[in-house]
């Protein structure tokens, strides 16, 4: 969801802005792991409860940023909390791209709350065979 959409949604549902702002100050770093093979780097990020629409992936300069925003909790309080362990803050992961990556061809998919981002190794960095003349 883009920021504007989020703002529109916040306005239409009449939420107070202060609460929304408070939600944005704190972030949790999600669990993640990175694998590498000859073709690409694969980043797996665990974002339970975050749908595709709530996930934003951006590459800016040398930083890969993954943000997962939670649903704004339901305002009607028919559900009383008996026990709470799941944190309310949104997820944010920033990774420095300290390896040559083909930025045009970064792809991502999401399954069962796990986001998999594939960053192809840039052509310049690939091992290549040199023919002997």
């Amino acid at each position: 969801m883009t920021t504007t959409e989020k703002q529109i949604q916040a306005c239409s549902s009449g939420n107070n802005e202060a609460e929304n702002r408070a939600r944005r100050v704190s972030w949790i770093r999600p669990q993640y792991n990175v694998n590498q093979d000859a073709e690409s780097y694969t980043v797996r990020v665990y974002l339970p409860g975050i749908s595709r629409e709530q996930t934003a992936i951006t590459v800016d300069k040398d930083t890969l940023e993954i943000v997962g925003r939670r649903d704004v909790p339901e305002q009607d309080s028919t559900w009383k909390v008996l026990h709470r362990e799941i944190p309310e803050a949104d997820y944010r992961l920033r990774l420095e791209l300290n390896a040559p990556v083909d930025r045009e061809n970064i792809s991502a998919r999401s399954e069962n709350g796990v986001l998999t981002v594939t960053l192809p190794v840039a052509d310049v960095a690939r091992p290549r065979q040199i023919a002997i003349n």
């Binding site: 797996r44 665990y46 974002l47 339970p48 409860g49 028919t78 559900w79 009383k80 909390v81 008996l82 026990h83 709470r84 362990e85 799941i86 069962n112 709350g113 796990v114």
Partner: peptide
């Protein structure tokens, strides 16, 4: 992790089981 909620007619359990 899990959360437990109670409503007038039901209980609700939400758990994080990514992957």
């Amino acid at each position: 992790r899990l959360d437990v909620y109670e409503g007038p007619e039901a209980w609700k359990v939400v758990s994080e089981v990514a992957g």
